[in-house]
Simulated assay, not measured.
Amino acid sequence: MSVFDNIIEQDLVSPHIFSFYLNRDTSADLGGELTLGGSDPAYYEGDFTYIPVTRKGYWQITIDRIEMKFDYLCEESCQAIVDTGSSLILGPKLDIAKINTFIGVDDSRIVDCNKIFQLPTIRFIMGGKAFDLTGKDYIIRHPNNESICIIVFSKHYLKYHNEIKWVLGMPFIGRYYTEFDMERDRVGFALAKSSSKCIESLSLSHFIVYFIIIFVISFLVSLVFNKNEINFRN
């Protein structure tokens, strides 16, 4: 049972929704926000597009297709999960190779930082709506050398359920404010405000800090639950 499941079971929050905002502008004071019990309109614009969860246990949804100008991936739909614990967008090896070719990079995933705004758009179609990722969305500064720019697309190694082909991690959530609706078993996406202002501000730093914070919180909560369980058994 997850932390949020425990919160729901104790009737501490309503509605049974949690949402994530991740800010890729490293000059901003706020790196992101986790909202329990709904969504915060201060961090997104427009309406949500909701995609039904196809498999409980994961936040698994259907990608209708992925468009790269005149080429397509996932043409007959495929399964993906929305994962706040992933710092990348992960996909099948052959599909990632096609994306690399489309963008114009090799297996090193390194991009000329001066050409970010010339890079093509990659479009994820979900729930009948197009979710576009442009160069400034799918390129980040290397955490150890900010003069190097790399793409966030990478092949995964099937540590997830076999039918899952894609993992939409933090770069996607950074572009699209994400709502996890446990009442209706659906995931909602809306355009995040100031999600990626300019390439000079892009880096992994906020993602790394965010991940560490979430890990520490989860660890501390698990300690509390384990202690309560031990006390109960005693």
Rank of each mutant, 00 (worst) to 15 (best):
L202V: 13
Q60S: 15
V221Y: 15
W59N: 05
P143H: 12
N100G: 06
L158V: 00
K69W: 03
F153K: 02
R109A: 07
N226W: 15
C113F: 03
L22Y: 04
S201C: 09
E76F: 10
D71N: 14
I139W: 01
I89Y: 02
P143D: 14
D5R: 11
E146A: 13
I66F: 03
G57P: 07
Y157H: 12
D5I: 08
D112T: 03
I212S: 14
N145T: 11
P143M: 11
Y21S: 04
D137C: 09
I199A: 04
V111R: 00
K227S: 15
F153V: 06
G37V: 06
S205P: 00
M170F: 07
H142K: 15
R184V: 00
M182W: 06
I208A: 13
D29E: 10
V187K: 00
F131R: 02
G127A: 07
I148D: 09
F4P: 04
R65V: 07
G174F: 03
L22F: 11
S39A: 12
S39G: 01
C74P: 12
C74N: 11
R186K: 11
Y138Q: 07
F207Y: 12
W59S: 05
I7G: 05
C78Q: 05
D64N: 12
L12K: 15
S147A: 14
T54W: 00
I213E: 12
I217F: 14
L191Y: 08
I61G: 01
G38L: 08
I110P: 04
M182Q: 08
R123H: 04
S203V: 08
D106V: 00
Q10I: 13
L168C: 05
I148C: 06
N6K: 15
G91M: 09
F207P: 02
I96C: 07
C198F: 05
K193V: 15
G169W: 02
E67N: 12
R123W: 02
P171H: 04
G57D: 12
L168R: 01
I125R: 12
H156T: 03
K93D: 15
D64M: 06
D71C: 04
I61A: 02
I66C: 05
S154K: 08
G135W: 03
N23Y: 00
A80K: 05
H206C: 01
T121M: 13
Y138R: 06
I217T: 12
N145V: 10
I173L: 11
N114G: 11
G91L: 07
S87Q: 13
E183A: 09
I151F: 02
V216Q: 12
L168E: 03
D181G: 01
F20M: 06
I63Y: 04
D95W: 11
E33H: 08
A190W: 01
I122R: 05
T35H: 10
I122C: 08
G127C: 06
G37L: 08
Y176Q: 03
H161V: 10
D71Q: 14
C198G: 10
I8K: 11
G38I: 08
M1P: 06
G174M: 06
C78R: 03
H206L: 01
F20L: 13
I7P: 05
T54C: 02
L88H: 10
D83P: 03
G188D: 00
A42G: 04
G169L: 04
E67K: 15
H16K: 14
F20P: 02
I96S: 05
F18E: 01
M170H: 04
G37A: 11
S194F: 08
V167M: 07
K197Y: 07
